[in-house]
Design a protein around this nucleic acid. Structure first.
Lengths: 341, 341
DNA sequence: TTGTATGCGTTATCAC
DNA sequence: GTGATAACGCATACAA
């Protein structure tokens, strides 16, 4: 695919009988270059269809002006919304985005990180895979002097910038709203306990339950059932219990879908016999019937914030700043699935 | 952020008292390097935490091993699924992905392309913005000797590899299924007429109508209403007509949602009084009530195919191959919204 | 088997 | 104002 090579500053220099370095300065509008010369160079560049090669420039500069992103799946609303926000900020700052997906696998996550290190990215934004139970891969990044920003699914065993929602507070709000609707026997379906956000959501749940002086049978709190299928498998036995839950709070919308499947299979009506509350406000949540009560994480905003953190706090900073955790406010969206009236 | 620099082959060479170029060969397991030396180099590399800098290597090689992707929005199922497929293939071929979104704007699309050219990407995969009515931006890419592969939203005024669905055939099938269900007065909500896929979907619609000897009032075919809102605005007056349509075929699921909104607003029941058929099989389509009949485009497969086209037909080829259009079979998914019984 | 020289396209430094 | 030179990190043709 090399029919002919692209024009370089050497070509422009030759045509204009000036030196390549001077062309470079002219193109970057260096002060020491007269306006008339800048003009001449620009015209010749246009004429030769010259395009600046940013990778060569970045090699020279010792940067890549590229941000790496690792997410479990790019085709889940939460992540694609977040990436969308990240892309906007990066684009506005003349940086580009290299995206990898881990498919929730720790091994693939490690490979993706390896690739990004080879690519010499300036920063890595990561939301960890469900499977990830070690911080070795993150330490690997740090070992290569690449700053890490975790978002949403953060491992607190690794110190880095983090962008998350006010998970505990909003979960507390959600469960309170269930209690206000008259639900009394509320179960919880969670995610991997290593991931802080899932622990926090559980804490919020427990706080609301405790505050209302309700009791939770030990088997009403089930961790590590993050997918629709696994939540379904967890909900079925729960809903077959003599003293079955009258509401279920889950840490993702997909899990709520699994609960709804289970309820349908057992002929249990939502919301009258069973309240359901999800998390993430996926596109489908307001479209299912009954529409799903959930939590809007403002994911695009979360992505934007993560990227901005790089540009404001790390980029062009001399030393590594003290890490920090940014909290993005989220909102409960009460819909039919948790409204008894 | 330059606390200390990363190790290079020079560092390894110095430590081992051999030449840098020899290190390079040893690391790439060149034949002329003894196994014992390879081993020594590898160990030292490991020890110094050396990471291959692929951007420097690629600069030397005159490639970037990077594919650029431009889509309207990365957070729409169809596109994120397609990108997911593209990513898989690229990752398997040791290439990385730079992703830009046009937000359906021609101007942003052009800027994204400009960025990708600067980035020196080896190929650009693009699905054009709704607004795009010129092929200038694509010619700009070609002018820079970068191969273009259009997918889904292709402009046929620009000759390039293209990957699309069997739009006409599957639309024909979809409309036939509506007719089979007894719908007789079927309207069409389309996209921009410049984009081939939308024209083809219309052609399929017309073919089925013609075959069944049904007539279509001139105002039952409405182009260029691609979003939920615009489809809603188009559907409302249509459904207020004395001789209103008893079914509507749209070229996207979001449009169908707009139609459903309109029907709900006017108290028209789906599917008994109005059949609705969408396109794309977005995640939500099987979750809405009534569930939406639609067309599964096999978008991940479509993305994979687009990427494979690059690796199989363009990458490492001496001359630009003759372009070609690849058709990905799609399938109709008949659900409640178009089933009268 | 090992090493040398050169260049990829740019920019920063210094000299004129 | 303008230009020569080195360097970014690597790979390759060529020499030994």
């Amino acid at each position: 695919m090399n029919s002919r090579k692209r024009a370089t500053i050497y070509d422009i220099a030759k045509e204009l009988n000036i030196s390549p370095s001077y062309v470079s300065k002219a193109l970057s509008s260096h002060e020491s270059v007269s306006e008339s010369m800048r003009q001449r160079v620009r015209e010749k560049a246009e004429q030769l269809n010259y395009k600046h090669n940013s990778r060569a420039a970045n090699l020279r500069r010792g940067q890549s002006r590229t941000i790496g992103v690792v997410v479990p799946h790019i085709n889940q609303s939460f992540f694609s919304d977040a990436i969308s926000g990240i892309e906007e900020v990066c684009f506005a700052n003349n940086h580009s985005l290299v995206i990898c997906q881990s498919h929730e696998s720790y091994e693939k996550e490690g490979k993706a990180i390896e690739t990004l290190i080879h690519q010499n990215v300036d920063c890595i934004l990561i939301s960890n895979a469900e499977e990830t139970a070690s911080t070795d891969h993150l330490r690997q990044i740090a070992k290569n002097k690449i700053p890490v920003i975790q978002f949403d699914r953060c491992l607190d065993a690794f110190d880095s910038f983090k962008v998350i929602n006010d998970n505990k507070a909003v979960s507390y709000e959600a469960v309170r709203s269930l209690i206000r609707e008259g639900y009394r026997n509320i179960a919880f379906l969670g995610g991997p306990d290593l991931v802080k956000i899932f622990r926090e959501r559980k804490e919020g749940f427990i706080a609301a339950i405790a505050e209302a002086n309700l009791s939770i049978p030990y088997n009403f709190i089930i961790d590590n059932v993050l997918s629709r299928e696994r939540a379904n498998q967890a909900a079925l036995p729960l809903l077959r219990l003599p003293n079955r839950p009258d509401a279920i709070f889950t840490v993702s919308d997909l899990q709520s879908l699994g609960v709804m499947d289970a309820a349908a299979a057992l002929g249990i009506t939502i919301p009258s016999q069973l309240g359901v509350f999800g998390f993430a406000d996926e596109t489908f949540s307001q479209l299912v019937t009954p529409s799903l009560s959930t939590i809007d994480q403002h994911s695009a905003e979360l992505g934007r914030k993560a990227a901005e953190l790089y540009f404001q706090r790390i980029y062009q900073q001399d030393e590594m700043p003290k890490t920090e955790t940014v909290v993005i406010a989220s909102e409960i969206r009460i819909r039919q699935s948790s409204r008894r009236q």
